[in-house]
Structure formats: C-alpha cells, structure tokens
Amino acid sequence: MTDAGHVPGSVRPGGRTARIRTAVLRAAEDALIECGFAGVDLAEIARRAEVGKTTVYRRWGTPQALVADLLQDMAEQSVRRTETGVLADDLRANARLVVDTLTDPRQGALFKAVIAAATHDRRTAEALHRFYAARITEWAPVVDQAVARGEAPAGTDAAEVVRAVSAPLYYRFLVSGDPLDRTVADRSAHAAASAAAAGAYVR
C-alpha cells in the first residue's frame, strides 16, 4: 500500500489507461470465476485482456494487488443506498440488493471466489474487508436517520444494524445452501429493523 492509502492500480485513471484497467479487471473477474484465485496469473490476465504483459506487471505487480483493485472497483460501482424515510424499507432495499448480487450467476461466483481467496491470502482478505467496510459506511446513514426520526433509540450502532441485515444472507450463500431469494431478504431486513427498534443494537 502506498503512503496515499491506495493499492497499486487503485487510482481511477482516464482515457486509454481507463480502458486498459477496465479490460484487465474484467479479465481478472473471468479468471476468478473460472479458476479461483489460482487462475489469477498476470501473464494470463494480460493475454485475456489483450494488453501487454509489461503494462500489467508494472501497474499491478502481483495477483493480490490486482484482486485488491478489482474489489475497490466493485465498491466504487456498487449501488448507492436507498433513503425512503422508513428504516424497514431502507433495510429491505439493502437486503434485496445483497440477494440480487449473490444470486446473479456472474456476481455470485465472483464473490465466492474472492471470499475463498481471502481465507488464505492476507492482502485479499484486507481488500475484502475494505470492500465491506465501504458498503457498511454507505448504508449506515439510513440507520442514523432512523434514530433521528425516533424509529430506533439513541446510541444505536448503525454499522451493526447493517451487518445484521446481510449476515443471514451470507450464511445461506456460503454455509447452509438454503434458498436465497427476496422473501428471505425481506425477512432479514424486518428482523434487523425490529431488533434495532427494540434497542438490541444500542452501544
């Protein structure tokens, strides 16, 4: 990581550089989906992206740095939070977004590959943690707004409420294999909103 807090390749470029980055990140996605982290070979990524190997090695340097940049790009491209003025509805939108992402054939496979890689690679794990921290930061304000409206008590930990929405969904996705659909999403959101209103997440 550089002094500016960016992993290699993380500064959003423009023009030809942006096209190269897009092509390389797409190739990295394909490799992760098809082969897992072991398939993220920089020379192979360069071939898939039709980019010079020197460019890829100079810009990213390691497969870990490339996957970290991919996760940063995913965070930047993620859908912004919904603000309806009702906590349960906001959390429902969050839960449905998670379910729609995880059940998408391409995105679901990509997340499984990245999560699997993160279990044995420290840099990938750190990048994954940053990705989810960014998503929690994006959605936490809907809980703070609910507190201000009186829907949840003062001192409610907004980040914990957001985590409570998605945790059961990831459990089904990664562990139990139980059905994952919008009905499940809505139930998870309702449970988190009810618990928040009852004070379960007060710090």
Rank of each mutant, 00 (worst) to 15 (best):
F111V: 11
A133G: 15
G155L: 08
H120Q: 15
P141N: 07
D121R: 15
R149P: 15
A154W: 00
F111E: 10
A116V: 03
T124G: 06
R106A: 13
L128K: 03
L102K: 01
A116L: 03
A134R: 03
A134G: 13
L128N: 04
L102P: 00
L102T: 03
E126F: 01
A117H: 15
L128Y: 10
A118V: 05
A116G: 05
T103L: 06
A116W: 01
G155K: 07
A148I: 02
R123K: 10
V143T: 09
D121Y: 12
P153F: 04
A148Y: 00
A146G: 13
A113H: 09
K112E: 09
W139A: 11
D144I: 06
T119L: 15
Q145L: 15
L110E: 04
E138K: 13
A154C: 01
A125Y: 03
I136P: 02
D121G: 12
H120V: 08
P153Y: 06
A118H: 01
H129N: 12
P153E: 05
V143N: 06
Q107C: 00
I115C: 10
R135V: 09
A154I: 04
A148S: 03
A116F: 00
R130Y: 13
E151M: 03
R149K: 10
G155A: 06
D144V: 14
A148D: 12
D144H: 04
R122Y: 12
E138I: 07
V147N: 13
T124C: 15
Q107V: 00
A154R: 05
Q107M: 13
A133Q: 15
A140M: 10
A148Q: 11
V147W: 10
A148M: 00
I115P: 02
T124K: 08
I136V: 10
R149N: 06
E126A: 03
G150A: 02
V114Y: 02
F111M: 10
D144F: 01
A109T: 09
T137Q: 06
I115A: 09
Y132C: 07
H120M: 11
D100G: 07
T124D: 12
T101N: 13
V142T: 15
P105Y: 07
E126Y: 02
A134I: 14
H120Y: 14
Y132K: 04
Y132R: 14
I115S: 04
F111I: 12
R122F: 15
R130K: 03
L128D: 01
D104R: 00
D100E: 06
W139I: 02
D144P: 05
D100V: 01
T119Y: 10
A118T: 03
H129E: 12
R122Q: 13
A154L: 00
G155R: 05
F131D: 05
